[in-house]
Simulated scan of single mutants.
Amino acid sequence: MSLPGAHVPSSAVTVLGLGPMGRALAGAFLAAGTRTTVWNRTPGRDRELVERGAVGARSAAEAVAASPLTVVCVVNYDAADALLRSEGVAAALTGRTVVNLTADTPDRARATGAWAAAHGVRYLDGAIMTPTTTIGTEHAVFLHSGPADLYAEHRPVLAALGRTHTHLGEDVSRAAAYDLALLDVFWTAMAGWTHALALARAEGVSARELAPFAQGIAAILPPLFEETAGEADEGRFAGEGNPLTSAVSSMAHIVQAAEAHGIDSGVMRAAEGMARRAVGLGHGADGFVRIADVLAAPLARSAG
């Protein structure tokens, strides 16, 4: 075990947090031949990794002292901050780098970044955009934010985690902002899919029967994302092909059919309500993405 201030190899890495994702991260580092030290609050989770060659630290402070780079992956920033800011760990981290791959809000990323700067800890925030099974493969996707020189310094070690790493800028909160926005897309889509399954089942259509057609709907979305992103950024909301008034009518039909079967349609009712609000503000002829402006309007007014 390395002690604070002792020389450690530049290719060494410490992983704090050995849940399913943390174990996958540590395993990828080991597979790449990187000296890997691991620690978890619950004893015993490091057993398999130690058998593969990892060094099991007796404490979190000992773990971070063993490497110039510490990767943190725990349940949220309450857990991450409690760990990083504990007396022994904070002292051991001075002058070393933390890459925090814990998921939470942009505000929490900014706060932890500010704490790190005030305590001499070099800090990068990050987000893991793919499941544990992709870690260490060409399919893994990571987002990073924070000092560009720090990212460049540790990029060769982080490369062991997967092929795609993107640095989003110096603001440490950028990775968290992307993460939440993209998860918003994912979970909203999954909520729509589960509601669709319930509605289809009520009408005698099985999930397997519906799935091929649902994939066709999903294939429509990527070009729509590209097209409407430009409209949103430029403030133009063409609705000639599918105005908001048409969308409201379509969503109302879904709600009516689902609720006739006793299916909870709260998510679709919320979407319909957003669209009706935009129509009520005079945007009925606009495209669906106009809703983004309507949703943000109260925030814009309060910021002003």
Rank of each mutant, 00 (worst) to 15 (best):
G17D: 04
R201Q: 10
A92I: 05
V289W: 04
L224G: 07
F29A: 04
S173I: 04
T36P: 06
R155P: 07
G304K: 13
E259S: 05
H139W: 02
F225W: 14
S302D: 04
A218I: 13
V50M: 10
A292Y: 03
A181S: 13
F225H: 12
A296S: 13
T94C: 14
G5Y: 10
Y123N: 00
A114Y: 04
R45D: 03
M251F: 14
G262R: 02
A238I: 09
T134N: 10
R174W: 05
D293F: 05
G230K: 10
W39V: 06
I220P: 02
R58S: 12
G113P: 08
V248W: 10
A292T: 14
D125W: 01
E153G: 01
L244S: 08
N76V: 00
I263W: 02
D149L: 00
I263C: 02
G136C: 06
T34M: 11
G262D: 01
L16M: 11
R110P: 05
T112A: 13
H167Q: 06
E226R: 13
L295D: 03
N242G: 12
R163E: 04
R155V: 01
G88Y: 10
A63N: 08
D104E: 06
F186I: 15
G230I: 04
L3S: 14
M129P: 02
A159Y: 04
V72R: 05
A200T: 08
G5V: 08
M129T: 00
R236V: 03
Y77N: 05
S67K: 02
P106I: 00
F237M: 07
A148Q: 15
R58I: 09
T94Q: 15
G169H: 05
G33S: 05
G22E: 00
D233F: 09
L295E: 03
S67P: 13
G5A: 12
P43C: 08
A79G: 09
A54R: 01
T70S: 12
T245K: 09
T94L: 08
G113Q: 01
S2N: 11
G239Y: 05
L49Q: 07
M274L: 15
T188A: 14
R122T: 12
F213S: 08
G304M: 08
E259R: 10
L3E: 15
W193C: 05
S145W: 03
L168Y: 03
A238P: 15
W115V: 09
A66Q: 06
G287M: 04
T133I: 11
D104P: 11
F225Y: 14
A275V: 15
A114L: 12
R122I: 11
T37M: 05
A127K: 03
V157D: 01
